[in-house]
Design a protein around this nucleic acid. Structure first.
Length: 543
RNA sequence: GCGCCCGUAGCUCAGUGGAUAGAGCGCUGCCCUCCGGAGGCAGAAGUCGGAGGUUCGAAUCCUCCCGGGCGCGCCA
């Protein structure tokens, strides 16, 4: 397993704290960046955690832990101070920093990656937009979020499959077919039908549409829409492993099977001519209809069949990324999952909040059926893939996102994504200037043997770069890709300070070790490229 | 009425138990003999929606209240 210098430090601290405590701490001690440079390179709450059980003042415990830690780390640590209520502040030596850089460099592209042995197999279902229109910006947020999450989970060591559920069955699809037919005949779409211009365009692309029946048109229309959706997603850098058709579930009898299974399990009852699933037995607030009194199956029934399929495929975990307007659906779906024999913890719902598009500070209406929407393609045309992806994952998924198009256009120069990309391009430029042989030599040599005295800016940058493994872990665990936009920005900022204070090419002129500084640049470049890559944003060599 | 999400600087938002709460944009003022100025530095700007509680310690956890968004169908 790739380990990191910070992880080793944490392990050492944990061992020492356990020794003082007499047994392992209930909570692993934290290693954090202290708020101020006077507090050292790292600080830990280990003594605060151990003190209550020992019945001793935290500062006394801290002194003992500090003493043992100093012994254990030897020349790695310059000094350990006890501060405040009992924090341990660690001041690392230059030797430790050099060793840490060497260790991180040695991991090459695997730096920051999680252990595959501990990984899970995870199915992530996201976007799953109705195939009755092009992808909107809201779907774009789902795509950007879901895909980044998958990239992060994969890098963190999990095996991930991306799946798009296609609602190609039911009344909406029929209505779609009727709308296409109407347009083909030069009529208005039926009441509640699809009025977007793309429907007319679609009608023109289907031969003999005016004379065709609505069901056939719906099938063909959905095919063409999915083709378009795939194209938009491809352009956006998002590729699915599978487009799962709802209709295929109906065709292979999966719905009958699931009904039978649930009946056999005693989860279903008849009431007023309909059949109901007793979801209240598994935490839902009311029971739900599976088969209407008309004999028609509900959408919910399809979804249960779909989730049964997921369950049987045997993933360790299934994640459903849903829109905010579907949150009411979580309770019943989880209940159905349990009714099918699934473990509740293995089905996870992530609710995406809405995207408000602002144009000139005004909120834009977005209704697919009325045809008033901005498509993902429009957005990409407008601000580009990189900016679009970055903007759409910049905020936590559970908060409403305001995206002001006017602002995104006008301020494209001040766009934070350019700031991070610029830092990457600038490093590439420095490395070009240094020359390939010098870079190759710096990467190959034993950096821990360098005599470089680290400038505070270099030290700050190095510590930031060493945070990557922890950031990846947290982003994966918390399903929080947006953390990496913050992290990438921090790296770019710290690199700027390093660049200002430490000459790389020609470092010898100011008494520095050029090779060591080149290695710092290489690691910074890798970390930036990794952070951007996990967000699906490009890391350009020049801009 | 019930459920889910949100409320942090003028604006958009980071920060899921630690020290004096941060960033971007906007605002004020500086810095190009220098490896890329798409940059850097400094400053102004906060009752972390409110009130209780838990804790050595709360923006963070619990309870209640207020404000905003989204749901609550034999629709999908």
């Amino acid at each position: 397993m790739p380990t990191s210098p910070v992880a080793e430090l944490r392990a050492a601290l944990g061992a020492v704290a356990a020794e003082v405590r007499g047994e392992a701490l209930a909570d692993a001690p934290r290693i954090e960046r202290p708020p101020k440079p006077e507090f050292g390179d790292y600080s830990s709450n280990a003594a605060l955690l151990a003190a209550p059980a020992l019945g001793e003042p935290p500062r006394t415990v801290a002194e003992r832990i500090g003493g043992l830690l100093t012994e254990r780390l030897g020349e790695g640590v310059e000094r350990v101070e006890v501060a405040g209520p009992g924090f341990l502040n660690l001041f690392m030596s230059d030797a430790w920093c050099r060793g840490a850089l060497a260790a991180a460099m040695g991991q090459e592209e695997a730096f920051g990656a999680g252990a595959r042995e501990a990984g899970e197999s995870i199915l992530v279902e996201f976007v799953s937009a109705n195939p009755t229109g092009p992808l909107t910006v809201a779907s774009g947020r789902h795509a950007a979020y879901g895909d980044s999450l998958c990239r992060i989970l994969e890098f963190a060591g999990h095996r991930v499959e991306r799946e798009f559920y296609v609602n190609d069955h039911g009344s909406q699809v029929r209505l779609f077919g009727e709308s296409i037919q109407a347009r083909a005949r030069g009529d208005e779409p039926p009441e509640g039908g699809y009025k977007g211009e793309y429907v007319t365009e679609l009608a023109g692309r289907i031969d003999g549409a005016a004379g065709a029946d609505p069901d056939g048109l719906a099938t063909r229309g959905v095919e063409l829409m999915i083709e378009g959706v795939r194209g938009s997603l491809e352009r956006f850098g998002v590729r699915f492993d599978r487009f799962f058709s709802e209709r295929s579930l109906h065709q292979c009898g999966a719905l009958d099977l699931v009904s039978t299974t649930l009946e056999e399990r005693g989860e279903v009852y008849e009431h007023e001519g309909a059949s109901w699933l007793r979801t209240t037995a598994h935490g839902d607030d009311k029971d739900r209809v599976l088969e209407r009194s008309s004999g028609e199956l509900t959408y919910f029934a399809s979804d249960i069949a779909y989730h049964r399929d997921k369950l049987e495929r045997g993933y360790d975990r299934a994640i459903d990324v849903l829109g905010a307007d579907h949150h009411g659906y979580v309770g019943r779906m989880r209940a159905a999952w349990i009714a099918l024999g699934g473990e509740p913890d293995r089905l996870e719902f992530l609710i995406m909040q809405l995207v408000n598009l602002l144009e000139h500070g005004r909120r834009m209406a977005m209704s697919k059926r009325e045809g008033e929407f901005v498509t993902l393609d429009d957005l990409i045309d407008d601000i580009g893939v990189d900016a679009a992806r970055y903007f759409l994952v910049q905020r936590s998924h559970d908060t409403t996102l305001d995206l002001d198009l006017t602002l995104a256009r006008e301020r494209s120069q001040d766009n934070p994504v350019y700031y991070v990309q610029y830092a990457h391009a600038r490093i590439a430029s420095i490395l070009r200037k240094a020359g390939e042989p010098a870079v190759a030599e710096a990467v190959a040599r034993d950096l821990s043997a360098s005599t470089e005295i680290l400038h505070p800016s270099a030290r700050a940058l190095l510590k930031r770069l060493l945070e990557l493994p922890e950031e990846v872990t947290l982003a994966a665990e918390r399903r929080a890709p947006h953390r990496l936009t913050v992290y990438g920005h921090d790296v770019a900022h710290d690199f700027s300070a390093f660049y200002r204070d430490c000459r790389v090419v020609g470092a010898a002129e100011e008494g520095g070790d050029e090779g060591f500084r080149i290695a710092m640049c290489v690691l910074a470049k890798r970390v930036l490229a990794r952070s951007l890559g996990l967000l699906g944003v490009s890391a350009p060599e020049e801009m």
